[in-house]
Amino acid sequence: MTWHLPTSVDDVVRTRAERPEAPIVAGGTFLGILVRQGLVEADEWISLQRVTELTRMHSAGDLSVGAMVTHRRLELDDTVRTIWPGVAAAFKAVASPRVRNRATMGGVLADADYASDPPSMLVASNAVAEIASVRGTRRVPVEDLIIGHYSTSMEEDELITRVVVPRPTGAAVYRKLRTRSQEDRPASSVAAVVHGETVRVVVGAVSDRPYHFADVCSQWRPGDLDSAREIGEEYASRIDYIDDNRGSAAYRRHVVGVEVRRALMAVAR
């Protein structure tokens, strides 16, 4: 077997273009589970562990997060915690320090795991992913990146290189609802971020992907309980819910209305 260790993004995309079957290994927390269970097998692997340019993070102006920046770093970084508290909270909510020490910004988006915490917050924050391939670089809003159950709009040979989160102009709240152990993944994940006079509410972990309804959000009257309730009910009614150990579809539908309303009241405080 071959474990490729490219050292630059150019190197990675070239290697990948020549070997489209070779999995890209970032932190390896999700891939490791699949590999352990025999669900992913390959003869060649492309590891990002030596691509130092992907570990860069800048926070002057917008927040630029390299694809290999770990959850733990985002959670603990003083500037992120101060200026992007919603982002820090969503990354801190993921699993345990062990996983957050390894799991990366690029990985969480490329996996498009419906029950992960960060995607809803990144969509609510208007984050944009930068994606590279041998054909060049393009920018895709995270909202358009995750398109379904473990599924993204990326081409097979593309690599997320960084994610840019605009500097917020209003409050951000992340609400994770757990129905079992406090260590569990979310039964619903609601992010609300205020941008000027408007709000972006995104609901994750209840369906195939994060859901944002701009037309519903546009009806928001900050601090108005009726408005928050109406938006919650509208969100609740528009989503097609999953049914699993963390909650039935009917329960999820009910709590999404409640959680959206609570998130909206919290960001208006």
Partner: peptide, 12 residues
């Protein structure tokens, strides 16, 4: 830093 050895591919 603590990591989960059961899902860490050895070359990492």
């Amino acid at each position: 830093e603590p990591v989960s050895g059961c899902i860490l591919m050895a070359p990492l």
